[in-house]
Design a binder for these strands. Structure first.
Length: 904
RNA sequence: GGGCGCGUAGCUCAGCGGGAGAGCACUACGUUGACAUCGUAGGGGUCACUGGUUCAAUCCCAGUCGCGCCCACCA
């Protein structure tokens, strides 16, 4: 017995547990012999993460593909796992330690801290995987991996050492984006530029040996002047031609700085002269290298000014009172305090030409949002992304990996073709520690282990020397880049790697193309020689109803788990699938989730209907052998729906799959088929009744199969509860076969679809002319041809029932004083006496006439156009002609009907 | 500055060369023992604007306006 209502809260966990117990998630479950593989690696969520709506979308789409292909008999693997998320996790644990007023990480030391993080993870990490289960995700959980687990660490180690030995990883002193709070390098990609109000100060720098002459430079960051080592002007700039090669004197400091000619200086901007601070500005770094200017770093790791014992700063600067005063005033100040002081000092000396208010773009850490990132000169490890990118570009260019939608390929190329060296080291403790050891003289030994490094050192030095390991860890994305093959066991040549790699499809949001997709392409190709995936399906980002980014501070976050609680995972999943076609932002309205919850209810009730009427699944029943037109029709429509759903999912058009299912289940199966079936199921034609029972059950079974990838829970539940043979074998629906249907009876389809049009037309006119809903009215049909007469004869009972008719009789001609509906060649008449509002009918017919008149005028004009006749395809012309003919008939008959009504 | 996306019914969005669609919201009416989480019917749109291509443009092209995103730059 089906319960009165579907209780998703109680049902979903029960069903999920049953799937797990049945081993239904395991790789290869339900695979046909010799089946092709279908592999997806999950975008590993952060251990610190909790399920947000973006995860819900991302994983729902993956699960739809996985369930679909599993049912199609492919050898399916959905590889799950998590990312150790270096910075995020370290921050979470540090914050917790602070809240508990425990000693900080530097106090307890690296080993103890890393232990603490592992402990935190064991206790609080990884909730998100359980949340994915609530969504219904059918990952092979037995294969769960973690970017920091033993196997993956081994992969990371090998990749680092191999790339180093191939000169694709190197150590270099370069400017990087530095987070002075976390004291680590951060990725270019993690820097978010925020526009805030600021100032542009124009400073006057004196020219050496030219009393009273200045060169004016401008800056938004005055404190960096302490590190100035040159001034640049454009080579073609007449104003400064004589100064090129001369020196300027850095105020406050006294450093002599060369004035160089460099294209970087834009004569149009400001004075046309630029101060050059190679150690604190990315452009200046390049200019400095071109002209061999000294690099003077004036900050420590926390971005406090360091002048006093700063050899670079003091090098070549003559001792002076001025310098001493500057050091006294600025040394040790943080960068923002130093900014104010520098401005004040310059002002005192009358060296500020002008100050303008100006909005400036300030780089912020994308994660903490608050910390201002500082370009900072440090030693870091870099990967030669330019070299690695080349084959990755070619793979997409030549179609071996395909982006869906294709438009994202452009973004990918754009970035890959201008790729910068990838800074892969981070000054953190949580992550893969870099396998590099330094000898006493600083020689680097990169090796798979300390023992190996020792041996290399001994070979190098001729004796054993103490080594110290590089304290840095790798960028989290370094290990993520290996995910498609490291999770399958690489570098071991495991059977899984051989079978499931390369993977089939990657499903991810477009904002992660640079971080992840591009890097997986690079690493996958370099280490396996194969593209890590055939397709990359990129979906949009989810926004709230008004299109705003969801954020905790705005309070507009929609928690997917709340939606699951309220409407069920099925409803949420169906909603997410149905909105995937939207552009780059998806706006989620909860009213839609509610609508699809109602859809689930609708399906549930259809099943209850079937149960009430004893519609049992009959083994071996084939609707192709059905006798009833009605049953042949619904079987045909089922075939058509199955085809639409199949091609839609194959083409990643999830919304089309959803709408095809919605339309079919609600507006064909429930609205019409069930209504048509009612009289048969309660009638006394036993043959028809049995056939219809079987067809109803057959149809429902196909529906739960087709709907399963989108709504796995309710369909699984119903599959078990639908009475009949199939339910008895105990196999879960999720491991059953996807419907491959080919039965189509066009004549049956046309016949029933004609009847639907007829009933809809009668209902519509009834309402228009104000026939009370409950009134049963007599109706006559005149002018019917043989086909129509036959159809009327066959379906009279149904038509009468669904159109609320008292009688349906053939007549020689239209009944006078009646409402008249033109259906093709026939006219349907409803008597006016008593039931029909004659004025309403008159205006209805007049409106109809006006409408059809317009239509005819349009078609006439079109068909009179010789160009159209000459150039349009015959097919199109034929359609227009048929349409004109139809419209003309309608006009004639409507005119006649209006005439028959007489004048008011 | 470069690139991308979006402007279609009150709202959220499909469609994308040959008759303007869905869901929600709205209006009216509820009769049918699967379903009021429902049923039936209905109103509502110069498909942002301007040009062009075409026999034909919501759809293709160019431009304009508006909204949003990404990248770069801003000394």
């Amino acid at each position: 017995m089906l319960e009165k209502t579907h209780d998703s809260t109680a049902t979903e966990p029960r069903i999920y547990a049953a799937w797990e117990a049945a081993g239904a998630f395991r790789a290869g479950a339900a695979a046909r012999d010799g089946a092709e593989t279908f592999t997806i690696v999950i975008p590993p969520p952060n251990v610190t993460g909790s399920l947000h709506i973006g995860h819900a979308l991302n994983n729902t789409l993956q699960d739809i593909l996985i369930r679909f292909e599993r049912m199609r008999g492919r050898d399916v693997l959905w590889q799950p796992g998590m990312d150790h998320a270096g910075i995020a996790t370290q921050m979470v644990v540090e914050r917790q330690m602070m809240e508990r007023q425990e000693p900080g990480r530097r106090e307890i030391g690296r080993a103890a801290f890393v232990d603490k993080v592992w402990a935190w993870q064991a206790e609080s990490g990884g909730d998100i995987l359980n949340q994915l289960k609530r969504l219904g995700c059918s990952c092979d959980w037995d294969r769960e991996r973690f970017t920091l687990d033993e196997g993956l660490s081994k992969a990371v180690l090998k990749v680092f050492v191999d790339l180093y030995r191939d000169d694709l990883i190197y150590r270099d002193k370069r400017l990087v984006n530095w987070d002075p709070k976390l004291q680590t390098a951060v990725s270019d990609l993690e820097v978010e530029n925020v526009e805030i109000p600021g100032h542009l100060w124009h400073f006057k720098y004196p020219i050496e040996e030219q009393e009273g002459r200045f060169i004016v430079v401008a800056t938004t960051r005055p404190e960096t002047m302490l590190g100035d080592t040159g001034v640049a002007v454009h080579p073609d700039d007449e104003r400064y031609r004589d100064l090129v090669g001369k020196n300027a004197i850095l105020p406050l400091v006294g450093r002599r700085m060369r004035i160089v000619a460099d294209e970087h200086a834009d004569p149009e901007l400001g004075s046309g002269a630029v101060k050059i601070t190679p150690a604190h500005d990315f452009n200046d770094f390049e200019v400095g290298k071109r002209h061999d200017l000294p690099m003077v770093n004036v900050f420590d790791a926390e971005a406090n000014v360091v002048l006093k014992d700063n050899e670079d700063f003091l090098a070549g600067v003559p001792q002076s009172d001025d310098l001493a005063a500057t050091i006294a005033a600025l040394d040790g100040l943080d960068r923002f305090a130093a900014r104010k002081r520098v401005v004040a000092l310059m002002e005192e000396r009358g060296l500020i030409a002008t100050v303008e208010d100006k909005p400036v773009m300030v780089p912020h850490d994308e994660k903490s949002k608050t910390t201002v990132i500082e370009p900072y000169l440090t030693d870091q490890w870099f990967a030669d992304a330019k070299t690695l990118a080349k084959p990755a570009i070619a793979s997409v260019r030549e179609g071996r990996t395909r982006f869906v939608p294709k438009t994202w390929e452009k973004t990918y190329f754009e970035w890959m073709e201008n790729i910068q060296p990838w800074c892969i080291s981070r000054q953190l403790w949580w992550g893969h520690q870099i396998p590099a050891w330094y000898g006493p003289d600083g020689t680097v030994f990169v090796a798979h282990s300390e023992e190996e490094a020792q041996a290399d050192a001994e070979a190098h030095y001729g004796r054993a020397e103490p080594l110290t390991r590089d304290p840095d860890v790798l960028d989290t994305w370094f290990s993520s880049a290996l995910w498609p093959f490291s999770t399958l066991g690489w570098p071991e040549e495991t059977p899984e790697l051989a079978r499931y790699y390369p993977t089939t499809t990657l499903v991810t949001a477009f904002d992660i193309i640079f971080f992840w997709v591009a890097r997986m392409m690079m690493m996958g190709l370099h280490f396996t020689g194969k593209e890590p995936f055939r397709d990359v399906y990129l979906h949009a980002l989810v926004r709230d109803e008004t299109g705003a980014k969801m954020s905790k501070s705005k309070g507009n976050v929609i928690d997917p788990l709340d939606l699951v609680d309220q409407y069920g995972a099925d409803a949420l999943r169906f909603t997410l699938a149905s909105i995937t076609a939207q552009g780059r932002d998806i706006k989620l309205a909860t009213s839609r989730v509610e609508g699809y919850r109602n859809f689930a209810t609708k399906l549930w009730n259809a099943a209850r209907f079937a149960e009430h009427h004893d519609c049992r699944v009959v083994d071996g029943f084939d609707p192709a052998e059905a006798k009833e037109t009605l049953n042949r029709w619904i079987a045909t429509e089922t075939t058509r729906a199955a085809r639409s759903v199949t091609t839609a999912i194959e083409g990643y058009r999830f919304n089309e799959a959803a709408s095809a299912l919605y339309r079919f289940v609600w507006h064909q199966f429930c609205d019409w088929y069930v209504e048509f079936a009612k009289p048969i199921l309660t009638g006394d034609d036993e043959g028809a009744r049995d056939e219809t029972r079987a067809t109803v059950a057959w149809g429902l079974r196909r529906i739960v199969e087709l709907l399963h990838p989108l709504m796995p829970f309710i369909t699984e539940d119903l599959a078990a509860k639908l009475p009949g043979a199939t339910a008895a074998d105990g196999a879960p629906l999720m491991l059953s076969r996807w419907p491959e249907l080919d039965f189509e009876d066009t004549a049956a389809a046309d016949e029933i679809n004609w009847m639907i049009d007829l009933i809809a037309a009668i209902r519509s006119v009834r309402a228009d002319v104000n026939v009370p809903a409950g009134a049963r009215i007599p109706v006559t049909v005149s002018g019917a041809n043989d086909v129509t007469r036959a159809r009327l004869a066959t379906h009279a009972t149904l038509i009468k029932r669904l159109a609320r008719l008292e009688s349906l009789d053939l007549a020689d001609g239209p009944t006078p004083r009646s409402a008249q509906i033109v259906i093709g060649e026939a006219t349907v008449c409803m008597p006016l006496s008593g039931v029909v509002d004659i004025e309403a009918e008159r205006s209805r017919l007049s409106n109809e006439l006006a409408k059809v008149g317009k239509e005819i005028a349009k078609l006439d004009a079109k068909l009179a156009n010789e160009q159209f006749l000459a150039k349009a395809p015959d097919e199109v012309i034929a359609v227009q002609r048929a349409r004109l003919e139809e419209a003309s008939t309608l006009r004639t008959k409507t005119e006649a009907a209006l005439a028959r009504l007489g004048s008011g």
